[in-house]
Design a protein around this nucleic acid. Structure first.
Lengths: 266, 266
DNA sequence: CGACACATTGATTTACCTCAACCTGTGTGG
DNA sequence: CCACACAGGTTGAGGTAAATCAATGTGTCG
């Protein structure tokens, strides 16, 4: 698909086989960003019994729909998803773009029903985690319980950031923030921070940022004119990450050292 | 202060004494909305050992500041709080208005540092919950662990609703949604759903809704002109909850039966 | 009473939306 | 191999909801 962040497609464009050796958390490429992060090996062994079940989700397919009853959490192994909520009048808000290592479905626990839906933005691969099993295991493994709290808590923190984005920031700052955010998240996954291919269409970006596709299009152009990025369709090259971060009004995506490290490594 | 939702002030306007008999969860007026909700009595007994420590917070005082290190969760016993995040450029976004029974500080777990701050909107009373103790107890008491997950999950769900509000709704729908939301939350706490006193200034409402105080002021007036509410300063009377809910674009705040029940009970 | 924060009101500006046209790439069928 | 359709994306002209700027009002507390 592309040479920067190709996800789970091989270089020949074939979907990766769900071969047995790739199924184990301890060998998963995103284990440091996912549920097993920081767990002692013996606990990872036990976690692997919960995460055995894998699934492929094709681009455009939904992993779960709004209203579906809640049984599982889903850990993204490769690819990407959008999550969105639907209001009673049909109005839809994209709430998150999820990347490998991230957990989907946490918002469904309390009502036992998914309040949002998750749709694959590209062909993706996920682990199915039966929550009852995860819950039992967490009851016995404090480190896992802590990791679950940590993931919940971090999601809350991030949502608050997005509230600030939507409530206080101008349109160009919102787009800049999204680009900085995606850039840093790709970087943590071993992809280039400065060159990547957005897996979502302009419409989803616009929806997520509370804007229209037209405005997003014009903003991409404006950022390019100012020399902060280069864009061609969904391909983005970040030319001035510092200026982009400043425009976004946040230095949270990176600490300075990381900016330096990443920009030379490309 | 007012006869509708007086919080922890007595009828003579004196702050309630933190008398020993009010300290127990099992006798707390908001126990059905708080951490002990749904726990078997023997588990509530154990929970009470964690929730012994109480604190009064005066109007305008902060419970914790952005950057403070994380040790405790706080359960609101009476009064109300706003929580807000501060961007690196000083820009602030109010993220939540919290009422009795709700938990503050959950977003701090993952970083061990409070990413937001919490400020009392009126003289308030809270339980201090040392998180390490709560965590240990949850490890032994599955029902408590589930309750904690449930609270996390519900917060995530609500944040997504607010994203939709900020991303998709017009200004008047945002204010309507806030009023419906507050109305229903007061109702669940035994106060009137149709008459209440907002504990927050216009500025905080505006900030929360991603608007300016001027716009909020005009919107209150417009809602009054349309016969949906009556406003006088911070006093609000909801005249047409159904129309207000429709304007808000949500029927989530109430199910029909509840609207009927509440409106006759006033 | 006077000071001060909060709130309202009015006049003007503007950032973004809306609507409509057009472009561009990709897949499809003749 | 080309015509065509169609979805996603861009561009432009014009409109509007809400922001901004600037007074003015109102309640509260020392």
């Amino acid at each position: 698909m592309n040479r920067y962040n190709a996800g789970f497609m091989t270089s020949r464009g074939q979907p990766m086989k769900d071969s047995r050796h790739a199924v184990r958390c301890s060998e998963c490429s995103v284990r440091r960003l996912c549920l097993p992060a920081g767990l002692p090996v013996e606990d990872i062994d036990r976690l692997e019994r919960v995460t055995r079940n894998k699934r492929l989700v094709k681009a455009g397919e939904t992993l779960y729909r709004s209203g579906d009853s809640f049984h599982n959490l889903y850990a993204i192994r490769s690819g990407s998803f959008k999550t969105a909520v639907i209001a009673s009048d049909g109005d839809t808000q994209v709430t998150h773009f999820a990347l490998p290592g991230e957990l989907l479905g946490l918002d469904a626990y309390s009502s036992r029903t998914h309040p949002s839906y998750a749709e694959a933005l590209e062909d993706s691969s996920i682990c199915v985690l039966p929550f009852s099993q995860l819950e039992s295991l967490a009851q016995e493994v404090p480190a896992l319980q802590q990791q679950i709290y940590s993931i919940f808590s971090e999601e809350l923190r991030q949502e608050n950031e997005i509230l600030l984005l939507l409530g206080k920031r101008a349109a160009n700052a919102r787009l800049a923030a999204l680009l900085v955010n995606i850039s840093s998240r790709y970087a943590r996954r071993g992809y280039s921070a400065s060159r990547f291919v957005l897996s979502m269409p302009r419409m989803d970006i616009a929806n997520y940022l509370g804007l229209t596709p037209e405005t997003v299009s014009r903003l991409f152009k404006a950022l390019q004119k100012d020399g902060l990025i280069r864009v061609s369709g969904r391909e983005v090259e970040v030319l001035d990450l510092i200026a982009l971060s400043e425009l976004a009004g946040t230095h949270c995506g990176y600490d300075e050292s990381e900016i330096g490290r990443r920009s030379v490594s490309v």
